[in-house]
Design a protein around this nucleic acid. Structure first.
Lengths: 231, 231
DNA sequence: CGACCTCTTTGTCCTTCAGCAAACTTGCGG
DNA sequence: CCGCAAGTTTGCTGAAGGACAAAGAGGTCG
């Protein structure tokens, strides 16, 4: 098996302060793996045996209710740690991770977590930054769900995806991973029908342009207005 | 100023593994403070200068939307750490903390955070446990808000408060801090009117008994059914 | 190339619940 | 002990959006 290239990790926040030799050591213990779109990386409730770092692609973190409904808790972008149950002293994964697009991730056994946080300055810091961000994002979503109408929530969800993963195309900014109406409904707590209606209306107004599984936002500022963000 | 009694901390999870001398040292650096019901302990967005430990009473952690609406993010019970922005590498408080009942808390300047987590085994562990629990609880609430009807959410909110703070009285289990209809509506993302109607109905059905600011749940099992929890 | 599967669109109906309004209860402060 | 403030109850109305239904549009695999 050939060695992984060090450039995979240099520049990523968790490792930015490390020596080349340290990165080499970390990398030698990593297991790289490719996931097809829709493939499951780990499952809610299962033993958290490894923690992960997304190198390329996008991951959806999903919870399933007793009633079988799915809720998309958050999206992971390249460079982010995920499945970091050990950071919370948990020994099972709190949610399921599914590749939203074809993805590449590294993973390490949880027993290395303590070693990493203890030895590598910046690693612990970065994981707690991540946790803090997620906590904040979840706060925001709770507030949205509790106070805002469906249209505002859907607008906010689009904006969030655009902010997190948007890449410039000629018509505007495209969300970098496949998204269906159903996916959006799972992020916003509504039905795919309502999402479809909203997107159709916005398409008519020239705010978005959407093909089957991809969405391009052509007028982000108008979405901001719709989302009811503070001015 | 007289010294604080060591028994305040012995037995609490963050300190359970410590020597008497260590507890003494921690305590000598703590600032105790009493808060009246409704008093603010810290405010969203302000510099996080201290972190806190609740000794007695109950704290509501609240977020305010741009529109001026309040959302109750969570309740803190005695023995819990709160305002632990440093654990997330934040330097401002992410939410506002208000005493739900007359409360007593200790606090320490954030500069001691690193020292505490480094020197006192169990302290770091406990704070990350706390964080993990909160993350999980927020997940649950997002799922509830996204998938469940108002009645189920209100039932779930009551159950959560009962679980967290319930004390046995002769008629059933009483929530240990004052709660108004408005408070419940701020936890569940509905209006105080709807909450009032639900409580009236449940009162008629003999599930709860509520006075002005206190609620006694007389038939918890029936609330569980209403909340739509999995069987 | 055709069949099938998934995702989308659009229509209609109907329930839930927010909004508004007004009267009522309870506790507290002067 | 009275008046006021804060919280509650309840009725009515209308709109938002969920549920159901059915047809259309890509995409993929044989």
């Amino acid at each position: 098996m050939s060695k992984l290239d060090e450039s995979l990790l240099t520049g990523l926040p968790p490792f930015s302060l490390l020596e080349r030799s340290q990165i080499r050591e970390i990398l030698d213990q990593a297991l790289p793996k490719r996931y097809d779109e829709g493939a499951e990386i780990f499952h809610e409730g299962h033993d958290a045996e490894r923690f992960h770092l997304l190198l390329d692609g996008y991951i959806r973190v999903v919870k399933t209710t007793e009633g079988g409904e799915q809720i998309i808790a958050l999206h992971i972008s390249p460079g982010q740690l995920f499945g970091i149950a050990p950071a919370l002293n948990r020994d099972t994964y709190p949610a399921t991770a599914v590749a939203a697009s074809e993805s590449l991730a590294l993973s390490w056994p949880v027993r290395l977590w303590g070693e990493f946080t203890a030895n590598y300055q910046g690693f612990a810091t970065e994981s707690y930054n991540t946790l803090g961000q997620r906590l904040g994002e979840m706060q925001t979503r709770i507030t949205e769900l509790a106070t805002q109408a469906v249209e505002q929530r859907v607008a906010a969800a689009l904006l969030r995806m655009v902010t997190q993963s948007g890449r410039k195309v000629e018509e505007g900014i495209e969300i970098a991973f496949p998204v269906t109406r159903r996916n959006i409904s799972e992020m916003t707590g509504t039905t795919l029908h309502t999402v479809s209606r909203l997107l159709s209306a916005w398409e008519k107004d020239g705010i978005v342009h959407s093909t089957r599984k991809h969405i391009v936002v052509t007028a982000p500022h108008r979405l901001v207005v719709l989302s009811g963000a503070q001015g």
